[in-house]
Each structure stands twice: as C-alpha cells, then as structure tokens.
Nucleic acid binder design. Sequence first.
DNA 1: TGTCCTTGTTGAAGATCCTTGACGGCATGA
DNA 2: TCATGCCGTCAAGGATCTTCAACAAGGACA
Lengths: 193, 193
Amino acid sequence: MSGFNVGARLKQLRLRATLSQRELAKRAGVTNSTISLIEQNSVSPSVSSLKKILDAMPVSISEFFAGEQTSQERVFYRASELTEIGDGQLSWRLVGARRPNRSMSIIHERYPPGADTGADMLEHEGEEGGVVVAGTIELTVDGEARLLTAGDAYYFDSRLPHRFRNVSDSECVIVSANNPPSFSDGSGERHHH
Amino acid sequence: MSGFNVGARLKQLRLRATLSQRELAKRAGVTNSTISLIEQNSVSPSVSSLKKILDAMPVSISEFFAGEQTSQERVFYRASELTEIGDGQLSWRLVGARRPNRSMSIIHERYPPGADTGADMLEHEGEEGGVVVAGTIELTVDGEARLLTAGDAYYFDSRLPHRFRNVSDSECVIVSANNPPSFSDGSGERHHH
DNA sequence: TGTCCTTGTTGAAGATCCTTGACGGCATGA
DNA sequence: TCATGCCGTCAAGGATCTTCAACAAGGACA
C-alpha cells in the first residue's frame, strides 16, 4: 500500500554516491545500524533521521521522494489543489508543483495588509514577472519602489534585489511566473522534549 | 538546519482541507494526539506515519516536501502600457513586450462571452500555464475539456493541441505565462498562445 | 596462515514516537 | 445554568526507532 520503497531508494542513492553504510552514517551523524535497518525496511525512519542522512549525500527530501510522484502530467488544477508554499502570513499557491521538469513556476499570490517578503531583499537566478489582479502592492526592485494596482504588471531579472510589500489596508492578489522555476520556503526548527 | 517546518506544513495542508485534528486523525488511522504533537514540532514523525496522514487528505509525500527545494531594463508597467496582442475579439496584453531576450511571455487575457481561440487547435513548442482570475473558461487540451473558474489553474505542454473558449455569458480574465516566449515584440508575426 | 582492514548484519538497551485517556476552552442550545 | 459536542493540548506508558557493541564474511598483504 505504501507504494514507495524507502529502503531500496536509500540504498540506490547511497550506492550512487559510492558510500558505504558506515561512511554515510558517519557523515550524517547516525550509526551504521540505522542505515542498515532502514535499507532493509526493518524500520520506517523518522523524518528527522532521514533528513540527516540525505543531507550527507546530499539529496533533498523532496528529491528522495521524487519517484513517488505518479509522474502524471496533469493539466487542470482546481483552486483547492494548488500547492501552498506561503509562510502563513502571505499565501503563494503554486501551479503544477508536482510536474517533473517544469520550465516555469506560476504562482497565485495573496498578500494580506502588511504582508512583506522581507527587508532583506530577495535575489536569485532567472527572470520573473506578473500581473496585479486586485488591490495594491509596493514593489521595490534594485532600489526603485513603485505602487502597482489592479491591471499593472512587472517583469525583471531576478538577480536584482527585490521586495513585495502590501502597504494598503486591503488584500492584494497577483499572478506571477518565474523562469527557471524557483521558489523559497519558510524555515523552521524542530525542538526536542 | 532542518530548513523545513514539518509541523507548519502539515497544519497548513490540514487547514486547506478544512479538517480538524481529530477528523484527519480518524481518516488516517492515527490519533489526534499524534497530529497535535507533529504540528507543534514536538516530535518528528516517522515516514510511515506521515504517509498515512497525508494519504487521508490526500496529498503525496512528494508534494508535502515540494516547497523544500532551496531557492536559490524596465520593471514596472502600468495597465495601460501593456502591449495589446489580441485580435479585437479577445484581448491579450503582453507584459514586457519590448524586453530583449525575455525568457517568458506573461499575458493578461480577457475573453468576452463567446470568445474562442478557434476550432483548429493551437500547437507550438514550450510549456504554458495560468490562473483564472475571474469568470469561467472552457479549456480543451489533447481532447479533454474542462470548465475552469476563478482561482483554478492549468499547466501543459504547448505541443498538445489546445483551445480556450468562453462559453459563459460574462467576461473571463486569465493571467498566463509561457516559455519559451511565443510572442516577440509588437511587430507583426503572432503565433499563437 | 595470520593480522588488519573493510563490509553489512543483529540482539539488547536506550531514546523517541505514538496511543491512551484525561483536561480546559469555546461554542451551541435546551 | 447546565448539558452536549467539538476543539487542541498534555502526562504516562506501550510501541517503535536508534544506538551500542558484538559478529561473520571478504579482501589485502606479509
């Protein structure tokens, strides 16, 4: 039912990196036994352990499970099916998140009043652009700020430092695209007890 | 280090599905306490538990971690400055038309009632996707038709024959993107969306 | 042969996850 | 006001994951 063989997948990646169980364990900060048991599917590792192990290869967790996606190339997405990649404050809903080798990221973005991508400017490879669908947004690119309202648009080289901020008192909605596909994610830390 | 907030992500998905901790737990075959502890990052769930929970939404494990990937001229356009490339019946307004070596075409599209890209299906290189902002559109891709309404989205390989048609009695608005850009600047040749 | 290194496996002990069964808070409604 | 129901949280203990430490098998070298 699981449909995904964690042990086999780990072994495959480990061998691809030409690492022994012990060597991988050492880099990952776990014991060789852990690797052994996981590879035999004798246990189902915790996400935290799995992540430690993958980080040592390195392979992202998302990549680890990449084979799990049914490789289906979907065309239609209901609004509720878009993949939320926002941080709780602002909402970014990605179209076709699971699509393999997507050439663009198309995102339905909602910025409540006060929402802000942060004073430390974003910078990454590629190009991005979008259209403001509703509300007002303050967009700063390379030091130049502008207020955009419904119907206005933007397009810039993503290497230029940029920032989105809703300085109005109503929600702002944007549909954006960027190429090559990239998106960041809020971060957090797990704690022990 | 973790860089990925499992608890917040689970909560986000659960709320999107409008499920309580108890209801999700019931469907997943775990207890509500498990959900609670995971959402608080008090524990790092085992992969098997996480999978049971996600299966109940349903969300693939790959999708769960989709946001985990690390991220890595003229900028502003007033609505009136977008370049109209429609045919008089429907309106397509291109963002950054004159930008050299643009990697995408982002288009603000308006389809009045009855508007139609034509019975002879469009086919061209690249990929395209978009979000329906208002109204309803009938999108046919590779023989399969679907009605999309505000908030819905699509993404497909542009080589598949496709057609957009507004079969409702109100205007439909879409923001779309395609890559590589199918439209060069304002001059002459238009090839199709 | 013998030693030394590496490999992956495994039982028992320890650490963590998960469930049981409670609790208080906040609604709805008798 | 009290009952009912659903919400999310939490302590304790059982279930599972992870480590520790030992083991056997194989290769390299003398």
